[in-house]
Write a protein that binds this DNA or RNA. Structure first.
Lengths: 122, 122
DNA sequence: ACGAGAGATCGACGGTGGTCAATGTCGTCT
DNA sequence: AGACGACATTGACCACCGTCGATCTCTCGT
């Protein structure tokens, strides 16, 4: 019922919580789980992959509906989830809405899951 | 010995599917999503963290129930999910069941999500 | 101004998942 | 042998999620 506004993207939290090495607090686990739930879906994984593989690193909804085999509202819904999770960026140009990966967002999640120390490249 | 490393189905798939760089097939996305769903839960994330942080790298159910604040059946359920996903290993010694991280399992997932080329992988 | 098309939102429906209480199973101790 | 304790399993309940059709909003072209 309430408008779920997330002032700070969840990806920001994910960047500083090593899964192994120390016990996660309930809050840390909740934040990380929120991002993981966003990508723990076949359709959304394929969306991320399709967007990344598309020419220019961005794609509009019309480019994504057909290869996924899902309806346009469903695709829009999944894209919204990914945007809310801080993994995709939405840019509207004219009639079309272009989606692109947020640089470093996926790597941040990967760094949390990695048991080895993440390289200082972040 | 007890090194009967059964071919963890999901983890094996996860090690060879770069999310970015090319479009995922529906099957690849499904397999990857299955592993991600296993860890996309606050309780299970904390379980992984608790097990990893525990002395000896392993912990029994009795060690995990209290810090999580969940009932024993619920903890057992979550542990089973993690074992089925190939992320945890279960070893029963006497009355107690000890759980430990499967080496490299989390790193494999991290490697798939990472946009950069994974070291020593693929 | 009007129509057409892209995309977001809404409402509804079925499936899935997390949780617990109760119970079952197995090993241990007396 | 019997009792007890650790853990797994079952069944049920409730919330959430993925999906679609229908509809709305907005922009562009005519």
């Amino acid at each position: 019922m309430s408008v779920d506004v997330l002032p700070s993207p969840t990806a920001a939290v994910a960047c500083c919580a090593p899964l192994v090495g120390r016990a996660l607090t309930a809050e840390e686990a909740g934040d990380l789980a929120r991002v993981l739930k966003a990508i723990a879906d076949p359709a959304r994984l394929r969306l991320l992959s399709l967007v990344a593989a598309h020419a220019g690193g961005e794609a509009c909804v019309c480019d994504l509906t057909e290869p996924l085999g899902l309806s346009q509202p469903t695709v829009s819904h999944h894209l919204k989830v990914l945007v809310d999770a801080g993994l995709l960026r939405r840019e509207k140009r004219g009639v079309w809405a272009y989606y692109a990966l947020v640089p470093g967002a996926l790597d941040a999640v990967a760094a949390v899951l990695s048991t080895a120390a993440a390289p200082a490249g972040a």
